Amino acid sequence: MALEIKGVSKAYGRFPALKDVSLQARDKEFLALLGPSGSGKTTLLRVLAGLETPDAGEVRFGGEDFLSLPVRHRKVGMVFQHYALFRHMTVAQNIAFGLTVRKRSEKPSKSEIADRVHKLLQLVQLEDLGKRYPSQLSGGQRQRVALARALAIEPRMLLLDEPFGALDAQVRRELRRWLRELHDRAGVTTVFVTHDQEEALDLADRVAILKDGQLIQLGSPNEVYEHPATPFVFDFLGQACRMPGVVEGGRLRIADWDSEAPAGAPQGAVEVFFRPDEVTFAPADGAGLSADVKAVAQRGPDVRIDCRIEGQPVELIGHGPTLPPGVSPGLSVRVRPTRPQVYAAG
């Protein structure tokens, strides 16, 4: 493991931002820290960057005590949400900044700096824009410059704090794949903070999910999505339908529907979660949960179905282009979750 975080805690007054967080990242791994506002992900990133000092805990990187190293010796590149570029400097000057401010004994020659800037401009696909100023660039281009500047110091670890947060959805999607390719070519350990579930699942090798300063689950994107450790993780990683149920004798009962309980389901009162598109529909006299259809709306190849199950409003998704049999406003149908996740109630 390249990065080892053990028992890190940090409080601001009475507010605990991090509570005994422990996790690891492999060498050259792309690790996403995912969670809602206030979950502690940015605080953890700032601890790694040397911008915050934890109240307790240990951080090691490459076997070294990372917290005891002066910030300039950590060789960490950091990219913020709002670029933080120098407006009075050209693109090339911004990229070179971290090299030009080094002590004379550590500073590369002018030709070495120029060569590295040229290679980085090629890497971030801005080779013709080195003489421009930040005000002459688009938001996506500015973020590429910020990434190039972070890489200029040849960091051992790259820290990204919501780097696409200030960009519109289309630009975010375009930069997402590019960032993953950039990480692979740069060969550094990357820690990426985001509150965007799709972004984390699409980019990362592993995802650390935080809530209220605590680590809730750590795993590959497929592991955390397919096997959420808690109801919070299930709900946070995508649209979720939630129903109360009971597990007894290997059977799961939800309202008027009885089925075989999933393997390992807890006994007694439970909460049942399922994705709105992981359902099948049957006529009102078939098997499943009784649902009253209120409205239907076509959305490209899919169909949004607003209904009520046990008096609770539920939005389901049917895969088109035609409506599932019997699904029409004013009618009743039966709905069967195909992959329910079951958690102990409370």
Rank of each mutant, 00 (worst) to 15 (best):
C307L: 04
F232V: 09
V246A: 11
R116P: 09
S328K: 15
P313M: 07
R46K: 15
P134V: 03
G320A: 11
Y12R: 00
H118N: 14
A204W: 12
L31V: 14
L31R: 04
Y343M: 04
E4M: 12
Q81E: 11
L151H: 02
K10E: 00
F30Y: 12
P36G: 09
A287Y: 05
Q122V: 14
A297H: 14
R251K: 15
G219C: 06
D65K: 11
P36F: 03
R104F: 00
Y343N: 07
F61D: 05
G35K: 06
A240E: 10
K211C: 07
T43P: 00
D202G: 10
L31N: 03
T90C: 05
V101H: 06
V335T: 05
Q214T: 15
A297D: 15
A32V: 07
P325I: 01
K211A: 11
H73Y: 14
L23V: 10
Q267G: 13
L99C: 04
R132I: 08
L316A: 00
D168L: 09
V335M: 05
V247W: 05
V191N: 00
Q81L: 09
L252Q: 01
R275V: 02
V335N: 03
E315Y: 06
A269M: 10
R26D: 06
P313T: 08
L69E: 05
L201W: 13
H183L: 01
G320K: 06
G140M: 02
S220I: 11
G63C: 07
I305P: 00
V279G: 01
V193W: 02
L167W: 12
